[in-house]
Amino acid sequence: MPDSQLTAAHNPALLHHFAEPQQQRDAASLGTWVFLGTEIMFFGGLFCTYLVYRRGYFGDWGAASKTLDVTLGATNTAVLICSSLTVVLAVWAAQTGRRRLLIGNLLATLVLGTAFLGIKGIEYKEKFEKHHVPGASFQFNNVRIPGHPDQYANPSHAEIFFALYFVMTGLHALHMIVGIGIFIWLTVMAWKGRFTPEYNTPVEMGGLYWHFVDIIWIYLFPLLYLIDRHP
């Protein structure tokens, strides 16, 4: 059904201050993009901090980065990329009116998102065991700097690395948790059959948010795990 026919009818999803569904959709889209713009700056402060210290303490950070588990990190990257695929399929399913495909992909996204957090949890646990959590119990003694086997990494500088590691990945994980919340809501709505080829803006906007969180991780992975890996 073309959009114009819907405008004339009482469209339950159309809010009173919009003239037509297209205007409402465009407003939601712009609002989401602008919000993602603020998110870029939100993480941007951390990227700036990262840049300053990585530049200043490259060797120590290389040593600290090498203690991270690159297999788990890469696996998590793959998990998020797969979840981005299920999200884009969910959007496509909503736009083409395939309700079961939509629900299936939303659920798959939820599973993948939870898997990401689980793997992240394993990594965090390992940091606690190794005393790599900044604070009074932090230990990073006798770790050699990559490429300079005669030098030991400065534990203080490594502590800053781990502080930033926890803030950056923690903030990212927080965004994942919010995303999972959004997707649970979307799944419920899809279950109730709220989304049609004409009205699926929430799926689309939730998808934009999820992809954005994915992009952040796409940067975090090389920045944190791959600083100075080569043997």
């Binding site: 889209s29 712009l30 993009w33 602008v34 993602l36 700056m41 941007g44 700036c48």
Partner: peptide
């Protein structure tokens, strides 16, 4: 417009990084 929003945000991020680094 959405492209403009993305480009503008990245531009301001670049300002933050570049001018901070002009000090360091």
């Amino acid at each position: 417009l959405s492209k403009l929003v993305v480009v503008a945000s990245l531009f301001f991020l670049l300002i933050l990084l570049a001018l901070s680094m002009s000090d360091y």
